[in-house]
Nucleic acid binder design. Structure first.
Lengths: 188, 188
DNA sequence: GTCTATAACTCGATAGAC
DNA sequence: GTCTATCGAGTTATAGAC
C-alpha cells in the first residue's frame, strides 16, 4: 500500500482525537499540529468540521461491521464470536483512555449534524442486529437464565460501552475486564 | 423552604446543562441566559468553571449516595434494592437525552480539574461498594449463574451507564428499558 | 493542494462602578 | 452581589497568492 494520502491521514488522526476527547474536545488546530499541515488546508478536504465527523463515523461503521462479520467466518461457535466481540471493545480502549467512536460522539450529540447522528444510529442498529443473531444461535433452545436475543443483544452492547466508560474515567483498562468478566463466564 | 439563592440556582442549572451537553458543551453564557444573570456575576460565585464543575459533582455525589442508602432502609430485599437502583438511573434519563453526571463528565475528562476527577472516582467507588453489598446479600449462598459480588457490581454499573448512552443517542428512554430488562428478570 | 492572512465569533476571566 | 465593559486567547471558516 502506498503512503497514505492527506485525506486518509486526516481522518485517522481525527478519529483518534474524537475518541480521546470527544467531538467538542478537539479543533482543526490540534489536527494541524498532529499531521503537520496548516489549519486552512484541512478545509480543502473537509469544508466544515461536521463533514469530517460524518466521514470518520461512516468509515468507522464500515470497518467495524466488516470485522464483526469476519468473526462469523473465522470462529465456529456463537459463544466464541461473542467473546471476540467483547475483546474487540477491550482492544479499542488502547491504554485505557480511548472510547469507541459511538460513545465519544454521544455526549456532544447536539453539535453533530443530522447526517452524523443518523450514521451513529445506523451503526448501532447494525451492531444490535449482529449481536441478536449471535444470541439467537446461542439460545436455541431458549434458556431460563437468559432473556430474549433482542434483550441480550441490547444488554451486551450497553455492557461493553458502559465498561469502556468505567475504564476511561479511571484510565485503567482492567476496569473493563472486571465489569465484563461475569458475562464472559456466563457464556457456555 | 425559602426561594433558592443564586448559588443554588446556578448549580442546579449547571448540572442540567452538563448532563445534557457535557462539560465542554456549555458556557457561562448559557448559564447566564438560563437563570437570568450576567456572565460576569457568575464568576463571583464560581471564579473558574472548574470550581463550578467540582461543586456540582460533589453535591451530586452526596445526593445520590443518600438516595441509595435510603433504598436500604425502605426496601426489604437486595433484589428490590437493585431494581430501585436501575429505576433510579432510568429516571435520570428524563426525556431520554440526559445522562448521569459521571458519564457526562467522562468524555471531556481532560478538561476537568484534578479535584473533580477525584470526586468522580470517589463517587463511582461508593456506588460500586453499595452494589457489592447488595450482591453479597443476594448471592449468599453463591449461585452458579452469577459471578462474584464485585464482578456483578461492576457489571451492573456498566450496564445502566451503557443503557443510558443507548437511550441518549436515540433520544428514546425505551432503549434503556430494553437493555436492562434481561438483568431485572434474572433477579429473584 | 497547501500556504499566509484574516474575518467573525465565542470562550473564560478580570476591572471597576454601583 | 450584580452590573457594564473589555481583554486575550481560541474557535470555525474564508479569501486569495503560489
Amino acid at each position: 500500500m502506498a503512503k497514505a494520502d492527506t485525506k486518509t491521514r486526516l481522518m485517522d488522526a481525527a478519529e483518534q482525537l474524537v475518541r480521546h476527547r470527544g467531538a467538542d474536545g478537539f479543533s482543526y488546530a490540534d489536527l494541524s499540529t498532529s499531521i503537520g499541515i496548516q489549519k486552512a488546508s484541512i478545509h480543502y478536504h473537509f469544508p466544515a468540521k461536521s463533514d469530517l465527523l460524518q466521514a470518520i463515523m461512516e468509515q468507522y461503521s464500515r470497518q467495524v461491521i466488516e470485522i464483526l462479520e469476519g468473526f462469523c467466518d473465522t470462529l465456529p461457535s456463537p459463544a466464541e464470536q461473542l467473546r471476540a466481540f467483547v475483546d474487540f471493545y477491550r482492544l479499542a480502549l488502547q491504554e485505557g483512555d480511548c472510547l469507541c467512536l459511538c460513545v465519544a460522539l454521544t455526549i456532544g450529540k447536539e453539535s453533530l449534524s443530522e447526517g452524523t447522528q443518523k450514521a451513529v444510529l445506523n451503526f448501532r442498529a447494525a451492531v444490535q442486529k449482529w449481536l441478536e443473531n449471535r444470541f439467537a444461535q446461542l439460545l436455541s433452545p431458549p434458556s431460563a437464565t437468559w432473556g430474549s436475543p433482542s434483550e441480550e443483544a441490547a444488554a451486551t452492547l450497553a455492557l461493553v460501552e458502559g465498561a469502556q466508560v468505567s475504564a476511561r474515567i479511571a484510565t485503567d483498562p482492567r476496569h473493563f475486564d472486571h465489569a465484563t468478566r461475569a458475562f464472559c463466564n456466563r457464556l457456555p
